[in-house]
Nucleic acid binder design. Structure first.
Lengths: 251, 251
DNA sequence: AAGAAATCATTTGTCAGACATTTAAAAGTC
DNA sequence: GACTTTTAAATGTCTGACAAATGATTTCTT
């Protein structure tokens, strides 16, 4: 594990990469303790602040965790599904918000992936998943719900649908697709009639999942996709005409 | 944008989070220059090394880039699809290698997601995508190919299939599912007969994509999934019996 | 006056050394 | 033996300094 001080790249970046490679390559295994900062600075022939910058880079990616005290130090971190979810969501959200991805493109990707989960979810969903879906549908039907709360409930509904597939890898992959779209969804204002249509489709999907009918769930999702895209088209067209103020994405 | 020095969390982590929130929330926009390290240390009432650790955390997530010199500084980085791909692949790879995810679970997720791309790819693939798929199939049929090279070509084939859908968001999401599985795939040894079967299925899928037949592509993928899972089951069963040495994942 | 060269100022990158804080183990005390 | 105190090791933070890069400014030359 060596670095090249003559390379133009930052020393801390090189050190972080070297340690990262060691983790990915299996040289350093989960829960193994890294050498202390003093030992690392000695090994790489750099100062301790430089080593620390490298370690912070790794900590930011959840590759290591640090512990203070006598038996403390930096330890290779087992990347948990929760950490991976969070990273995935952040990355997806930023990717969509910073790259002028069209609503249609993001929507198409999201529903294509969700349809992939539907058959598995219809087969394996537990009563718990179903109960969550029903509860979210009920919440969505409450009058006086803000658009943001409606969207948040929408996300929860779809996550329950995805989690119903009982495949954590799938849930992880979908987390970004579903949650990353929320800022885009929040740009839409829903009328009462819009909501009613969406809720009806949610019920249809939940019914299909409950009855273990994969095709019905898939077609329900397809209709929901069309409905969502139609809504977005209308809202954006209205904004373009200046019929409404053109607010930026609401947080 | 403030921090609380009395909280137990690292100051650099708090500062990083505060800046991250500002970026996600839109307070800081793409290509905007952050205050200099000296100004930040003054603002947050911490030393410059602490600020630097915070900035390195953000740099590790590609949220900022830094530039030296008179007009240099830290700038909010536009998260490119390439950066997002790379992060996604690293995270997925680590998640699968560190969490004892069963081969079947990962495989199921991967093929479910790929089947979601197949209809779109059948509809939109260009001659380019098709040419890549054919080229990879040809490479896979070359004798003397190592198992690793065979797997790498397999990944390239599937990426071409996914990219054929012409949806960058979908390509981004699938990057992790396809490439993250490579270390697991590399644990499998392929006999000549195994390879022949896989290549035949690849050809069937490519034919379906070329003929713009979404259902045929989907069923080809389903068969490929079954074939892959059968192979893995055999290999692992043989290893368990001690008929072969039990190597760890080859890099 | 115009262009080239030198200088300067700003900013990040790195270093050295120090102190504070946390934590577990070792030593001491009853 | 159980409890308390001390100690050592490690990370977290600070101060101050210098190096290196780089654009802007000034000066010099023609």
């Amino acid at each position: 594990m060596q670095i090249d001080p003559s390379r133009p790249e930052d020393l801390s970046a090189q050190i972080a990469q070297a340690i990262k490679d060691a983790i990915i390559g299996g040289t350093l295994i989960v829960d193994e303790r890294l050498p202390s900062e003093a030992e690392l600075s000695d090994h790489f022939q750099v100062s301790r602040p430089t080593v620390r910058e490298a370690l912070k880079r790794l900590a930011a990616q959840s590759l290591i965790r640090t512990q203070r005290g006598a038996t403390g130090g930096a330890f290779v971190n087992r990347l948990s599904f929760e950490d991976a979810y969070a990273q995935q969501i952040t990355t997806s959200t930023l990717l969509l918000s910073m790259n002028a991805v069209s609503f249609d493109t993001a929507c198409e990707a999201r529903y294509a992936l969700e349809r992939a989960c539907a058959p598995l979810s219809a087969e394996r969903r537990t009563a718990d998943h179903l109960a969550t879906m029903r509860a979210e549908i009920f919440r969505q039907s409450q009058p006086g719900l803000t658009d943001e709360a409606f969207c948040a409930s929408d996300v929860a509904f779809h996550r329950a649908l995805v989690d119903g597939a009982g495949n954590p890898v799938l849930s992880y992959q979908l987390a970004g697709a579903v949650e990353g779209m929320q800022p885009l969804m929040n740009m839409i204002t829903f009328t009462a009639r819009d909501r009613a249509r969406i809720i009806a489709l949610h019920e249809r999907i939940a019914d299909a999942i409950e009855a273990r009918k994969p095709e019905a769930a898939g077609s329900g999702l397809s209709e929901l996709e069309m409905e969502t895209r139609r809504l977005a088209t209308d809202v954006f067209a209205a904004r373009a005409k200046g019929q409404r103020p053109s607010p930026s994405a609401r947080s």
